[in-house]
Design a protein around this nucleic acid. Structure first.
Lengths: 129, 129
DNA sequence: GCAATATATAACTATATAGTTATATAGTCA
DNA sequence: TGACTATATAACTATATAGTTATATATTGC
């Protein structure tokens, strides 16, 4: 990434964007333990089949998943396991942050003698900064 | 990422989203060789100062950059160099793909005895799949 | 205090896209 | 062939956000 031109930056950005969706991450996560068909992924994801298909189409477009139709079904699988490295890197950083957040929460609770039920308020406070 | 709940997935997705913008990648790239102030980043990015400030604010929110105001200026720097690992991973995958694309282009040109000027048509074709 | 500079924010527009429902397409089995 | 199942797509709505211009907020030096 020493001398990336604008076109390359757009390409990289689009790649990150493909991973920047909770539902798509959920699908990719579901494919960790092997291929699944659209029906299974629909059930796991908890949203409509149409939506899952659209996400799979996008993931396919970026070569993040492989598509193979067998009989009546279409099976999807991870195209390149190295995307999990990406996720792990991100998760590592986020884990640190979550722990930090939890620390803040604990301190907040201590300091204000709050009931755990009031955590929602704190969450809100943390979100808005 | 073995048992990520929905909240965690959202968190990871948001993190990727912070990196899913060409302009933000440009800024991060500009910070590779050390801190820069907003004015410098504005010049490098080629967009308005307001826009750069907004992007920096977002990057700051995700702890991707550090903020330090000295005198009249505000200097930003990379908070955690490991984001470049992420980018490198992505770039590696994209590089493969770009080369593949170029190969297709060459074959296409050969096969159709096209003039290089007609590359736009091919680009379009490749985009639409 | 006042002018000048640097950065941040508010208000707005335009665009992209996640999600929905309804429908089309393709494969299976009688 | 026709009913049935599985997947993909079209059309639409709602929402998020990148970018803009104009303005507010600091900070410096006079």
């Amino acid at each position: 990434m020493s001398a990336l031109n604008d076109r390359s930056l757009e390409y990289v950005a689009k790649y990150f964007k493909a991973l920047a969706e909770p539902m798509r991450l959920k699908v990719l996560n579901a494919l960790r333990d092997g291929e699944k068909n659209v029906g299974q992924l629909t059930e796991i994801s908890g949203c409509t089949q149409a939506n899952v298909s659209k996400h799979l189409s996008l993931l396919s477009q970026y070569d993040l998943v492989k598509r193979e139709s067998r009989g009546n079904c279409v099976f999807y699988s991870i195209a390149d396991p190295s995307i999990y490295e990406l996720c792990e890197l991100v998760c590592g950083q986020i884990a640190k942050r979550m722990i930090a957040e939890d620390d803040i929460k604990m301190m907040f609770i201590e300091a204000n003698k709050l009931q755990p039920q009031n955590l929602q308020l704190i969450e809100k406070k943390l979100k808005t900064g």
